[in-house]
């Protein structure tokens, strides 16, 4: 038995040496980009994500629905929504649930504009969401996790820590413990969501926060969340809190 203890000791130490906790390192994924991609994100004329902002602006001006009203008819300039995206998801007291940017836009379109809401992850919804998020560029993420949102926030935190999928890995395994390590060619970031909606080179298109969560779930062969479900929104709320204080960058560029 003593022999076995001696034999195992180096093993346990090896396990410890490879776990490099970097918890609460709130670093934007922007810092993991090379100079070239950083320059691309910073240049509004070259940043491919700005295409969605332009499309969003066109949709903003276009009357639609039973009342023939545009977003502008109610809200004026998109600048009037500066600050909104930095505080989402938030608790909707009437619906007694969380709502994120996509959900908020869809309910505004269906209830106030009385038009058919665009599908999740459709170009039409991404365009409006990017337009609205872009108005908060530079503002620190600041979600409210107290009061009625608290239970969902705690559920989101637990979800982040919970191992899942056939590979049995948690979000925290990669983005807390192993942030900075290389997964094949890709350097794992701290998993901050201040850039969304953002343009990912891997996707060759722009995507939402929820698309990213889905991608990471699929990477560990876990069942993705139902769109707009309580589970999906709780994790998004926790991620937004985790990135609190970081400047919103939408539309960011990521690898």
């Amino acid at each position: 038995m003593i022999r076995s203890v001696v034999m195992l000791l180096p093993l346990l130490l090896a396990g410890i040496a490879h776990a490099e906790p970097s918890s609460d390192a709130r670093v934007s994924g922007y810092h993991g980009l090379g100079d070239e991609l950083r320059a691309l994100q910073d240049d509004d004329f070259a940043n491919p994500g700005m295409l969605w902002v332009d499309r969003g602006l066109r949709a903003w001006e276009t009357p639609a629905g039973a009342e023939g009203r545009s977003c502008r008819d109610c809200h004026g300039n998109p600048e009037s929504l500066r600050g909104l995206a930095a505080r989402l998801p938030r608790w909707n007291a009437e619906m007694e649930r969380l709502e994120d940017l996509d959900g908020l836009l869809r309910s505004c379109i269906s209830e106030r504009q009385r038009a058919a809401p665009p599908e999740f992850e459709s170009d039409a919804l991404l365009a409006l969401a990017t337009l609205v998020a872009h108005q908060s560029r530079g503002l620190p993420l600041a979600v409210d996790v107290d009061g009625p949102a608290r239970a969902a926030f705690e559920a989101g935190r637990a979800s982040f820590q919970r191992r899942r999928g056939q590979l049995d890995l948690s979000c925290a395994d990669c983005h807390d413990r192993y942030a900075g390590a290389r997964l094949r060619g890709e350097t794992i970031s701290a998993g901050m969501i201040n850039g969304f909606p953002l343009y990912r080179l891997t996707w060759e298109t722009l995507g939402s926060r929820q698309r990213m969560i889905r991608w990471c779930n699929q990477a560990v062969r876990a069942e993705p969340f139902e769109p707009d479900s309580a589970d999906a929104l709780a994790l998004e709320l926790y991620l937004a809190w985790r990135a609190r204080g970081l400047a919103l960058e939408s539309p960011a560029i990521r690898r």
Partner: peptide, 23 residues
Amino acid sequence: LNQESIMPDYCLSGDRHRVAPAH
């Protein structure tokens, strides 16, 4: 050997959360 390890168990399948249906 080490429950905290991130290296998956390649021969086992039980007790996993939200595994995608195909797997």
